[in-house]
Measured scan of single mutants.
Amino acid sequence: MIVFVRFNSSHGFPVEVDSDTSIFQLKEVVAKRQGVPADQLRVIFAGKELRNDWTVQNCDLDQQSIVHIVQRPWRKGQEMNATGGDDPRNAAGGCEREPQSLTRVDLSSSVLPGDSVGLAVILHTDSRKDSPPAGSPAGRSIYNSFYVYCKGPCQRVQPGKLRVQCSTCRQATLTLTQGPSCWDDVLIPNRMSGECQSPHCPGTSAEFFFKCGAHPTSDKETSVALHLIATNSRNITCITCTDVRSPVLVFQCNSRHVICLDCFHLYCVTRLNDRQFVHDPQLGYSLPCVAGCPNSLIKELHHFRILGEEQYNRYQQYGAEECVLQMGGVLCPRPGCGAGLLPEPDQRKVTCEGGNGLGCGFAFCRECKEAYHEGECSAVFEASGTTTQAYRVDERAAEQARWEAASKETIKKTTKPCPRCHVPVEKNGGCMHMKCPQPQCRLEWCWNCGCEWNRVCMGDHWFDV
């Protein structure tokens, strides 16, 4: 396979590697080409510095992935760790964990309700045991953590790749202090920090972006993250068709209702045909949960890209028209025109101005929308079919299609509260000796007794199943 190397943020060049090629071997190839010592090179990928003893497969490097290699003399205490030698983080029983690669970060837990604080980093599902597709590297999971809308060759929703760059020099040479644990960490600028490894760059702020994971991409090709779309790892039924499908869209209502993408497309087109989208002054033209839940309008309007190009163009047109109407304007009634106009409040005669090729020149009556006339309008008909009709959803289907309910059931079956801080902690095999993952707590306690870890627990039921 081919990976592209950008040395000291210059133009990239291809390097041929195998899945079992080590990072140090990659350094040696680059060092020979650039005429520099291999031990002064640092390989940066997806916000993480890659260790010498890791392989291309370990690092989730795919065909035509772009890695950054910078030349920086080692500072005291760094060289041993980078070589894969006596790194205290690798000691058996050590409590410190390697910062998780962005290629394996899962933010789907952050669609849980606000009262489930902490689960994004504490609760991990076991539903990723799908067998890898044919042709994928051994052991590589097909679980997708992110979804994007690819405006490039795909023109559809695709699995996405999370990447990070330095907000100062805009190069992907920043190593994160810690990985993101929720969508806010990724979507809110300057929320996460790190250290830029580019020479002479003092940058410390992280800037995240997404790429389409279905095809090789260049540095400049980015895609918009659709953070309401998630892999259906909890096997929730769709609120409309009641099938279990994946991926799904999880509405931001209190129940976190789930809808499959085909039904979401149908829901949007139906509402669009009836012009029953909601115009929100802050958000724009949007839709609420299909069950009509309060405070559930979709905030990231790129989710409506699921409509496809033709329907999305209609959505944008109707949204612009609705904006004009909300501002007190009118639409030209001549067939084939429909231009938005903003006449004076007491102006009865409205002319669709033909300047700049935008208007048709038609003069019409503001009251009856017919060709302009003197005197009273002959008839004014009330528009028919403008009443909002509820999208029919079966109550039982709505009850079963809740992301929140599956989460709470998982928590109930696989977790116990920490005796000190009461945060839910998952036990997935292993011994009875637990350690609270909350940095402010870190209590060592017994899963069996529910009390602080002691010699009695150690001698009596340390390794009970």
Rank of each mutant, 00 (worst) to 15 (best):
F4M: 09
R6S: 04
S10D: 06
V30D: 00
Q40Y: 06
Q40E: 15
K48F: 02
K48E: 03
E49T: 02
T55I: 10
V56I: 14
D60M: 08
S65Y: 03
Q71R: 08
K76F: 14
G77N: 11
E79R: 09
E79P: 12
A82L: 14
T83R: 11
T83Y: 14
G84Y: 12
C95I: 13
R104F: 07
D106V: 05
D106N: 12
L107Y: 14
L112S: 14
G118E: 12
R128F: 12
P137S: 13
S167D: 07
T168M: 09
Q178N: 13
Q178F: 06
G179C: 04
P189Y: 04
R191F: 05
S193R: 15
E195H: 12
P202A: 12
G203N: 04
G203L: 02
F210R: 00
H215W: 00
S218Q: 11
S223W: 03
L226P: 01
H227G: 15
N232H: 00
I239P: 02
T240R: 07
T242I: 06
P247K: 05
L249Q: 00
H257P: 00
H257M: 01
L261Q: 03
C263G: 00
H265P: 03
Y267L: 04
N273Q: 04
D274V: 04
R275M: 03
Q276N: 09
F277K: 00
L283R: 09
V290K: 04
S296H: 01
L301Y: 07
G308I: 03
G308D: 14
G319C: 06
C332L: 02
L342H: 09
K349H: 07
G355P: 14
G357W: 12
L358R: 14
C360I: 02
F362I: 07
E367L: 11
E367T: 11
H373V: 02
E374V: 07
C377D: 02
F381I: 07
A383F: 13
G385T: 08
E399Y: 11
A401T: 02
R402P: 02
W403M: 06
T414V: 14
T415F: 11
P419R: 04
C431Y: 07
P437S: 07
P439A: 13
Q440A: 15
C441P: 00
L443Y: 08
G450M: 03
G450Q: 03
W453N: 00
M458C: 15
H461F: 00
F463P: 00
D464L: 15
